[in-house]
């Protein structure tokens, strides 16, 4: 069904953006599965067990997810590179196993009864998050994040609190992933802890790698292509992991910055500013 496909595309775009916003501050996170699960179960408990409407449940679970990310991130984000990848994979595993052991939300058997999310809800979410990212892309904050990503030590010598910026990116990513999770759960009506497996986190990161890590459009393109294309080409659907894996390999080799590699410039000297002409 076309609306199903568009819905999952929207969810994947949100997840890809949630990875992107962490990457902007230089942290590659494989913990997105965990935050998505938290958003899904958190919002689900609020709507199913407490009878909240979806919107406030979504927002509250996003905020809580961001707070958890901040607490986890404070020790975790001191680690870089391979170590950070390992820790974030660990977070995803822990979240899944923890949920499997909480009988209040159904344990291994799964958790059901959430409803109320439809295609329109995910479209609104994508538009809001997209608008925010666009606004962010041209702001001084984007520039500060770029500085932290490119050379954190120089950034801190320029009075930028690198730890704070990294936590900000990690938490914002967790919040967006939680919203995606909440919408996913309330669309599917029923989820299991294994729906938020580490494989999901890996796929989401690879969407971003494919699309491009330098601007907000890259993750959008990557996630959309990888979700929609298999729906229209049967070969792709059948061989999805293989085609996807080979595409990633080719991309890393020949276009390491992704399909859309450009970086948006955050400031131009205004025309009125005095300029010297001459030497060059």
């Amino acid at each position: 069904m076309i609306s199903d496909q568009l819905f999952f595309t929207g969810i994947n775009v949100l997840l890809a953006w949630s990875v992107y916003i962490g990457l902007v501050t230089g942290s590659l996170s494989f913990a997105q599965g965990a935050f998505m699960a938290f958003g899904c179960y958190g919002a689900g408990v609020l709507t199913v067990k407490f009878g909240w409407p979806l919107l406030p449940a979504c927002l509250v679970s996003a905020i809580l997810s961001a707070m958890i990310a901040a607490v986890l991130g404070y020790p975790a984000l001191r680690l870089r590179g391979v170590y950070l990848i390992l820790v974030t994979i660990g977070i995803t595993f822990c979240a899944r196993v923890a949920l499997e052991n909480i009988d209040y939300v159904g344990g291994v058997g799964g958790f059901g009864g959430m409803r109320g999310a439809d295609l329109n809800a995910v479209i609104v979410a994508v538009l809001i998050v997209g608008a925010f990212l666009l606004w962010f892309s041209f702001s001084p904050l984007q520039r500060i994040c770029d500085a932290v990503r490119e050379d954190d030590r120089v950034a801190s010598s320029l009075a930028i609190n690198v730890t704070f910026i990294r936590l900000l990116g990690f938490s914002a990513g967790a919040a967006i992933a939680a919203i995606a999770g909440a919408l996913y759960g309330h669309y599917m009506n029923f989820v299991r802890p294994e729906s938020f497996d580490v494989l999901l986190s890996i796929y989401v990161v690879l969407y971003v790698v494919l699309g491009g890590t330098n601007n907000m459009l890259g993750p959008l393109i990557g996630a959309t292509l990888m979700t929609l294309l298999p729906e229209y080409f049967r070969v792709l659907a059948e061989w999805r992991p293989t085609v996807f894996g080979l595409a990633i390999l080719a991309m890393l080799l020949f276009r390491p910055l992704g399909l859309l590699a450009f970086r948006l410039v955050t400031a131009h000297a205004s025309v009125s500013a005095p300029r010297k002409s001459g030497s060059l």
């Binding site: 690879l206 992991p241 894996g245």
Partner: peptide
């Protein structure tokens, strides 16, 4: 990082 990502892709294949 790149090699890690690439080996994930090989794993998928």
């Amino acid at each position: 990082i790149t090699a890690g990502l690439a080996s994930m892709a090989v794993g998928l294949v």
